[in-house]
Design a binder for these strands. Structure first.
Lengths: 224, 224
DNA sequence: CCTACCGATCGGTAGG
DNA sequence: CCTACCGATCGGTAGG
């Protein structure tokens, strides 16, 4: 029972009382930790449903219900359904960028371009199929439902994420392991990986490591 | 001014009069050639709009308007919005299968597996980006909006289309040109090609032939 | 956060 | 095929 204080208006000590919240525009800052706690289930439900049914195919009522709320409540936390999509995509991209940074930092000093590519591929699979896996697929497949302003806001992080692959592919190209033009190769490689969202089953026969081996074998003629 | 006969009820000679058509279930057979003529613009508008805005993001009113009809008219020709999606996907798959058959038939007797793969890749790009290009992308990206019955109806053709790649990849694997497992390679390769829908611009710098060269270079270490 | 509600839009249909 | 319409659902809001 954590649903007390029916409507006691602004009296004395009501500790978990709903502090005077302005309507419509909830704080992005975590000033009130409780705000964040209630945003969380909405964001996660939205990510899961947007991935499963698409942005247009998901109603805000679906999201509210999945988060254990009533139909109007999401709009206390988010200005619009679209703002919810933006948060999902934004969070997904932040996670992906961090994951990439960690993966590269984990490499030993002077690792070969070959090892670098393996690391990038493996972490990309993690982002697509790992524990946080609803977020980036939503970005990939619901991109068109973002406004152009929202796309621009994400673009910097997204471009940096993709640009990270280029020097690795260029090095592999110079040493002859990659024959295709690096810019086009990057598009094909990311496409091949991104499409795995359509067919890869995390509970299937292959692990993400095995998948990485196969990808490297395909792109670099690498024998696992 | 091609919008005459306001409401002249069934008098004498009214040549373009709407022949007594039954409601709800229009003929799939081309018994009445005019029927087919009016279905056509609906199918093409649907394909284009489904591709541009998604199935859920497209209203039947959008489709009707794009075909020059009023809002209720699509339902004279199709039972439902979903039936229209099915026709688009079905037609796309039929076109793809025919295109694949033609491409293989065009190959000289005893063509190398290498040449066979090139041919398959090239014709797949044609299906994705050529003149008939709205249909297969709709299948690829709106698959979830098909009913399970509809998916099953398409599955045979789709499976045959994909299976066609397997012997080619197996031959390449045997001769050492392809190091990845052929089944996984097929998924990655088709994914890389399918993803090009997201970034390839037909009016851009690269032709479909150039794209094919790059793909072969990437997958087989082929020098263009 | 809930209740109660609004206007808009949607897929689809009756009847001609 | 059009006109006119229906019931359902949708995103979102007022007010507490």
């Amino acid at each position: 029972m954590t649903k007390p204080q029916a409507s006691s208006p602004r009296t004395a000590a009501t500790p978990p009382a709903p502090s005077p919240r302005r309507r419509g525009r909830p704080p992005k800052s975590q000033a009130d930790p409780d705000e964040g706690n209630r945003r969380r289930p909405l964001i996660e439900a939205a990510a899961r449903l947007f991935r499963a049914k698409g942005f247009e195919g998901t109603s805000t009522r679906d999201i509210a219900a999945a988060a254990g709320m009533r139909s109007g409540s999401p709009f206390y936390h988010f200005d619009s359904k679209n703002a919810l999509l933006y948060v999902v995509v934004q969070e997904g991209m932040a996670f992906a960028a961090q994951s990439q940074k960690d993966a590269l930092a984990r490499l030993p000093e002077g690792a070969s371009p070959h090892a670098q590519l393996r690391s990038l591929v493996r972490q990309h699979f993690e982002v697509l199929h790992g524990p946080h896996a609803d977020f980036i697929p939503v970005m990939l497949y619901e991109w068109r439902s973002l406004t152009s302003t929202q796309r621009q806001d994400i673009a910097a992080t997204k471009d940096a994420y993709e640009a990270c692959w280029t020097p690795v592919l260029e090095a592999l190209h110079r040493q002859g392991a990659l024959r295709a033009d690096p810019a086009t190769a990057r598009l094909f490689i990311l496409g091949a990986l991104n499409w795995s969202v359509q067919w890869f089953n995390a509970r299937g026969a292959h692990s993400l490591d095995a998948l990485t081996d196969q990808a490297l074998a395909l792109f670099l003629g690498d024998v696992p």
